[in-house]
């Protein structure tokens, strides 16, 4: 007798194959834009499983079936992405995506999109770490943490020569303190195999850059916005939400920090992405991750 339901025997949140759910996942995670196309693909997968008389399947086997159907219907690149992204958590693999960038370049949106695509449970901003450090350490010990990173120089003790820009010195001092918290987060993600996305501007790149690049499962990207008007526009949008005013002075500071981070990224060899279109940025990031992790997964199979 032909089975009518296919059981998935090792998934947390789904016990039976559901073509609707598969279609939903494919569109929701951005593999297929058109929901009808996604549905017809899911229908094909179901027909194939039932025709082959499969009543029980493992999550990994199911991914392979979906991949084959995707390859037949769509760009093989999409099939590759789907395959890798879906397999990672099942194979106990984790990754840390680090998005470095100044305020208002669109890191937040990108982080959320990537979190959906990779089903990454943890998104953490460097601002949260900054706040934690500020509340947990005494102001006497870390005066530079008491203000926003853009005015941290006001808390600096007068040991620096004035030939450097105080804004950048203050910013870098704060970043160096946040560094300890950042490393804790990354250590933990790697040790417990929990994928994480970290976003923010508080990176002392000379300090942490080489280390980030050295970790096999960490993917750092520098997100910039070359177009100054677009940057201003996005900041103003955020400002409306945030009830915070972006003055021309603070905009200058934000641009200055961006140039500073850019310079650091160039020197360290961290990939720089101009975030003019978030779709293209996501594509680039996906390509980098897939091309680096695909051979790793294949190697383990052998």
């Amino acid at each position: 007798m032909m089975p009518t339901m296919v059981q998935i025997h090792d998934l947390d949140d789904q016990q039976f194959f559901s073509k609707g759910l598969l279609a939903h996942q494919l569109t929701n995670r951005g593999f297929i834009v058109d929901s009808l196309k996604a549905y017809s693909l899911a229908l094909k997968v179901e027909e194939r499983l039932l025709k082959d008389g499969i009543s029980e399947i493992s999550a990994l086997e199911l991914i392979e079936v979906v991949t084959e159907e995707l390859k037949a219907e769509f760009d093989p690149k999409i099939a590759d992405r789907y395959n890798l992204v879906s397999r990672l958590p099942l194979e106990g693999k984790s990754l840390v995506i680090v998005m470095i960038g100044s305020v208002g370049v669109g890191k937040g949106t990108l982080a959320n999109d990537l979190a959906t695509i990779f089903r990454i449970p943890r998104v953490i901003g460097t601002d949260v770490i900054h706040r934690l450090m500020r509340d947990l350490l005494s102001p006497m010990l870390v005066p530079e943490l008491q203000t926003s990173p853009f005015e941290a120089y006001k808390g600096l003790r007068p040991i620096y020569s004035s030939i450097y820009d105080p804004l950048l010195i203050g910013f870098d001092e704060v970043s160096k303190i946040v560094d300890a918290g950042l490393r804790s987060v990354i250590y933990r993600s790697e040790r417990e195999k929990i994928s994480t996305i970290i976003r923010g501007e508080l990176f002392s790149l000379k300090e942490i850059g080489p280390w980030l690049l050295d970790q096999p499962e960490v993917f750092p990207f520098m997100i910039t916005l070359s177009d100054e008007d677009l940057h201003k526009e996005r900041l103003n949008k955020e400002e409306q939400l945030d009830n915070q005013e972006i003055t021309s002075e603070s905009f200058d500071a934000i641009r200055k920090i961006q140039s500073y981070l850019l310079e650091g990224s160039e020197e360290m060899g961290i990939q720089i992405i101009d975030n003019l279109s978030s779709d293209e940025t996501i594509e680039t990031i996906l390509d980098v991750i897939v091309s680096k992790m695909k051979p790793q997964l294949e190697e383990e199979e052998l």
Binding site: R122, V128, S184, R188, T196
Partner: peptide
């Protein structure tokens, strides 16, 4: 934002 308290402990 989705945070686990274990990561706060780690910090």
């Amino acid at each position: 934002n989705l945070l686990g308290t274990d990561i706060l402990r780690e910090i």
